[in-house]
Nucleic acid binder design. Structure first.
Length: 271
DNA sequence: AGCTCTTCCTGAAAGC
DNA sequence: TGCTTTCAGGAAGAGC
């Protein structure tokens, strides 16, 4: 599941490989991923230069001009590969971008087809406009104020892209463990001091994950097919039944708002 | 407003 | 062994 650190890693990789390259060919094998009329998408992107590559939440933005960009959201199982054109096509390769320079091409691969690719105008783009603040950019004060305005369970809030953009299930669980907050906790019951802990924890976890090249739980890899290393540092995610690395209690998994949540019942007491 | 359920989709894992 | 069922979850939308 590509979340902020994985997407950030991919964006860094793209900046090293396709920056300033001009799109020579766009092959759409499975049009369902492209949320735009196929012919128009090809017409609008052909001949365009990748002027910059940015991340916003879990979205990858291939900037074609000041206002125009190709937006890629990897969904659950989306991959971007930078590979030789001679490489045999995988059955889940859906889109191919070829460039006027360089020997390799970009392939969008997505077994579960939850991802999307579209051409957007940044002056008016609901996909981006609706997103909340970047968790690595928000100040402690703003974070506490943002939380204070909200009700409901802290876990759901962390997953809500309209409030904080980029955190998914892995980093929500890891951040809550780091801050010693139970995923079921109601926001209004969490003290400002604890919210400050959470703010610090989110940044710490995300930064560490970016440095580790993201988490490879099931299928995530970078552009070259290399796995990340942060899964080795996970303290709760996908560790149900295993021992807490701090207190030795057994890690529990529960469902919070349709999402599985992993936590240590001893370190993260409900208040 | 927030919670729950549903849909999209397929590979992996579990169950029989 | 091999078939069938369940589960995983990012995001959106419906209904409460």
């Amino acid at each position: 599941m590509p979340e902020l650190p994985e997407v950030e890693t991919i964006v860094q990789g793209l900046n090293k490989t396709i920056l300033n390259k001009k799109i020579k060919q766009v092959k759409i094998i499975y049009p369902g991923i492209v949320k735009w009329k196929t012919a128009n998408f090809i017409k609008e992107t052909l001949g365009q230069k990748i002027k910059n590559i940015k991340r916003r939440g879990k979205n990858i933005l291939l900037m074609l001009s000041q206002d125009k960009a190709i937006l890629i959201h990897l969904g659950m199982s989306g991959h971007i590969f930078y590979t030789s054109p001679h490489q045999t096509l995988d059955k889940h390769d859906h889109i191919i971008f070829r460039f006027t320079s360089g020997k390799k091409e970009i392939r969008y691969n997505d077994p579960r087809k939850f991802g999307k690719v579209k051409l957007i105008d940044l002056r008016c783009c609901p996909d981006l406009d609706k997103l909340g603040v970047e968790p690595l950019e928000i100040s402690e004060k703003d974070f506490v104020n943002l939380m204070a305005k909200r009700k409901g369970r802290i876990k759901s809030l962390l997953l809500n892209q309209k409030i904080l953009a980029g955190i998914g299930n892995i980093y929500a669980d890891e951040s809550l463990f780091e801050a010693k907050i139970n995923p079921l906790s109601k926001i209004e019951q969490i003290s400002p001091a604890k919210l400050k802990d959470l703010h610090r924890s989110i940044k710490k976890v995300l930064k560490k994950a970016i440095r580790a090249g993201g988490s490879s739980i099931r299928t995530y890899t970078d552009l070259s097919g290399n796995t990340g290393r942060f899964q080795l540092s996970h303290k709760v995610y996908a560790r149900e039944g295993e021992s807490c690395k701090i207190c030795d209690a057994k890690i529990k998994r529960i469902i919070v708002n349709q999402r599985s949540s992993h936590y240590c019942p001893k370190c993260q007491k409900e208040n």
